[in-house]
Design a protein around this nucleic acid. Structure first.
Lengths: 155, 155
DNA sequence: TCAAAGATACATGAATAATGCATATTATAA
DNA sequence: TTATAATATGCATTATTCATGTATCTTTGA
């Protein structure tokens, strides 16, 4: 019972971008590309991660349109939304996958027709995500100055 | 992000016992042993599980004093408490293990000193368990008659 | 004393997450 | 136009953890 590192890495990437780019507000739900884009290499060096895995997470964040990715020379990625528009429940649900937390089929459990358990666990899961829904990336950037310093001195 | 089968099996065992033994009330926090005890074999046949794994879960439930186990001929196990005294949050926390849902060390994350995320996830986890705390084994036995029929015809 | 039950330790297998490698694709700059 | 730096993508491999199997010990009742 633990979030995947994959999900964790996704959140760290967003924190990195948020700390670097700042809390831009955007009316058109888009932010401008910064001068120099953040690259997968930057992330890997900062957090001491392997590029392969980060590669996939970045791609996923791109597909979710949370970041915008640019191929080619001087490419990289940046936040596609303002931090206060990136809800944590959405990020975690998408990266983590949204399977039930208890498995009643596979293999099938005979008690299923009279089982109250799966409903209770499913409701608990929703309460977890309802709570996360109250937070956005902006809430993860409360100590933005400190994060900036950490990220700039790391690697 | 899913409960272990181990935990699931534990809950099914308790449901089986509760359905069979009924909703006995006990002032001294103990129930009487029934005529014929439930065995690991009974559970395995009912739910089509391997005895090895169930063996360990039964042992664990015994250590938690949720059931009482009896070795030797005519041995087996039975509920050690009334169903309404067996809280679901306790069972799941114990069987599942109570680790944090997000890993900040191992390996260490540089952002940790300024990270807001782990606290948010930890609080969400507690809300999940707070919800489970409202339920007991008795709540899983609402359709007790149907469960009894299922369990008696299965195997 | 035998047989039926759980207790325990250790070994193996399976599933999935994490990582690695290779190569394709794209965009920019020289 | 070509070299280079970046992401995109698919497949292979490794590591971790969960699940299961095998063997043997211990306990208890008949």
């Amino acid at each position: 019972m633990q979030l995947k590192k994959y999900t964790d890495y996704g959140l760290r990437i967003l924190m990195y971008l948020g700390a670097k780019e700042g809390a831009k507000e955007s009316s058109n739900n888009r932010t401008e590309a910064p001068e120099r884009l953040t690259t997968i290499k930057d992330i890997c060096e900062t957090f001491s991660l392997s590029s392969n895995h980060v590669n996939k997470v970045v791609h996923h964040l791109g597909r979710l349109q949370l970041i915008e990715t640019r191929r080619g020379k001087n490419g990289g990625f940046f936040l596609a939304k303002a931090p206060n528009e990136i809800r944590l429940d959405y990020v975690i649900r998408q990266l983590e996958g949204d399977e039930p937390w208890i498995e009643c089929h596979n293999p099938y459990c005979v008690a299923l027709p009279a089982c109250e358990l799966n409903g209770i666990v499913a409701r608990g899961k929703e309460l977890f995500y309802d709570y996360l829904r109250e937070f956005t990336l902006a809430d993860l950037l409360k100590k933005r100055g400190q994060l900036q310093q950490i990220f700039s001195t790391a690697s």
